[in-house]
Amino acid sequence: MSELQEIPADATGLRSAFAAFPSGVVTVCAEIDGVRYGLAVSTFVPVSLDPPLVSFCVQNSSSTWPRLAQASHLGLSLLGTDQQDAARSFGSRTGDRFAGVGLRRGAGHAVFVEGASAWIEGSVHAQVPAGDHQVVLVHIHRLATRADIDPLVFHGSRYRRLHSEELRPAG
């Protein structure tokens, strides 16, 4: 069994440590004045049941987020295991992020990615500056889930699937 090794708390070390924690892959999309905007976000986290809030982080350097932040409603799509291509596309800084991606309209400006394991429709509740990112709190207005689609997971700088294991009661 290997032991933990201390590494520098610089950008390289932080990326390595953060890669040890799995996260879901989430897109944020909207259509404003006939133009679609979308991006993949990091560190999506459920925050509160009352009021219903989730959060995600987006880089300050993003040229897409300032446009999305103006939307009346955002469409958050929690991508499914078969959506690795969409995840790569929305995570890219160049090209048409929506190429080959099926979409569905929500309320206001919200746009969702077809085939996702869950959709959350909401509006920006607050933004908090946090170093080189913004922490965005989203107030949830509507949501939908699909039990038959497992979530896409990002871990160790790779897309992965969850492994299901039947848990047995102790004793």
Rank of each mutant, 00 (worst) to 15 (best):
F21H: 09
P22G: 06
S23P: 03
V26A: 00
V26I: 09
V26E: 06
T27G: 05
T27W: 03
C29P: 01
C29S: 09
D33H: 12
G34K: 00
L39I: 09
L39Y: 01
S42N: 13
S42E: 11
S42H: 13
T43D: 14
V45T: 15
P46M: 08
V47H: 08
V47C: 11
L49Q: 13
L49D: 14
D50G: 12
D50N: 15
D50K: 12
P51Q: 14
P52L: 08
L53G: 11
V54Q: 08
V54T: 08
F56M: 09
F56T: 05
F56W: 11
C57P: 09
Q59L: 14
Q59W: 12
Q59D: 14
S63V: 13
S63D: 15
T64E: 05
P66K: 08
R67C: 15
R67W: 10
A69K: 11
A69R: 10
Q70K: 13
Q70P: 11
A71P: 05
H73G: 10
H73R: 14
H73A: 14
L74D: 00
L76K: 08
L78E: 01
L78M: 09
L78K: 02
G80W: 00
G80R: 01
G80Q: 02
T81C: 03
T81V: 08
D85W: 00
R88E: 00
R88W: 01
R88G: 03
S89W: 03
S89V: 04
G91S: 12
G91Y: 04
G91N: 03
G91A: 11
S92I: 04
R93G: 12
T94M: 12
D96V: 02
R97G: 05
F98G: 01
A99E: 07
G102E: 04
L103Y: 04
L103N: 00
R104L: 10
R104W: 01
R104A: 12
R105C: 11
R105N: 14
G106R: 07
A107R: 10
A107P: 02
A107D: 15
A107T: 07
G108R: 05
F112G: 04
A116K: 01
A116L: 09
S117D: 07
W119K: 06
W119R: 08
E121L: 08
S123R: 11
H125T: 07
Q127R: 15
P129I: 06
Q134F: 14
Q134N: 15
V135K: 05
V136P: 01
V136D: 02
L137Q: 04
L137M: 07
V138I: 04
I140P: 03
I140V: 15
R142T: 12
A144K: 10
A144M: 09
A144F: 04
R146P: 09
A147S: 15
A147K: 13
D150Y: 10
P151K: 05
